[in-house]
Amino acid sequence: MTNAKPVIKVEHLQKKFGSNEVLKDINAQVNEGQVICLIGPSGAGKSTFLRCLNLLDQPSSGKVIFEDKELTALSEDQLDKLRERMGMVFQQFNLFPHMSIIENIKLAPMKVKGLSDSDAKAKGLELLDQVGLADKADAFPTSLSGGQQQRVAIARALAMDPEVMLFDEPTSALDPEMVGEVLKVMQDLAQKGMTMVVVTHEMGFAKNVADEVWFMADGYIQEKAAPQQFFAQPQTPRAQDFLARVLEA
């Protein structure tokens, strides 16, 4: 991992909503093949940080560099081109309810990449197989459980062959018995070498899958460390306090 090339670089990122400064000064780098888990108390700005990476939220100042391009300086057209290379999975799945599962997956490859219907379909079925839902291709989102929907959402993002996958609390809206199936898919993905940034409250996943844990609080990344080190010996009082509470529960 030492001489891996950087995929995303963040420099002095700041984000304000009105007078509320959510991100104060973030500096970070994600390397190729790395799995980063972002953890921290709610309101720490984890989701906002993730959304600033693909500019769903516009940073107030600072730089986000992806594939050697400064995103905040790009036009909307250029930004669309880069967004397709950053897959994103949302807490609320956000499947398109008016389309079947396979149509959900085919849409972007066909409309953005110009794939033919049959190529997009073949790819979609392969990805559905990968997330264990090959039999649901023609079902509609509302007929699926939350866990199944989230797995479709992952397949949908993968269909664009992204360079990096961003996960925004992917299991927080799920019933407990469905959390496992989604985490399993994410773990497989990590093992295949996908670069991933995951905002999560699943400490087990962070411990077992992450290459690095970033602890966020009060608008800053307070600690970056390998998971074993972070969970065994948190350095900052903020992190010690947080872990004490989480492990107690």
Partner: peptide, 12 residues
């Protein structure tokens, strides 16, 4: 969320 999901996939 629908717009965000779509934009994140690269749709204009």
């Amino acid at each position: 969320g629908q717009t965000e999901a779509s934009r994140s996939l690269g749709l204009s």
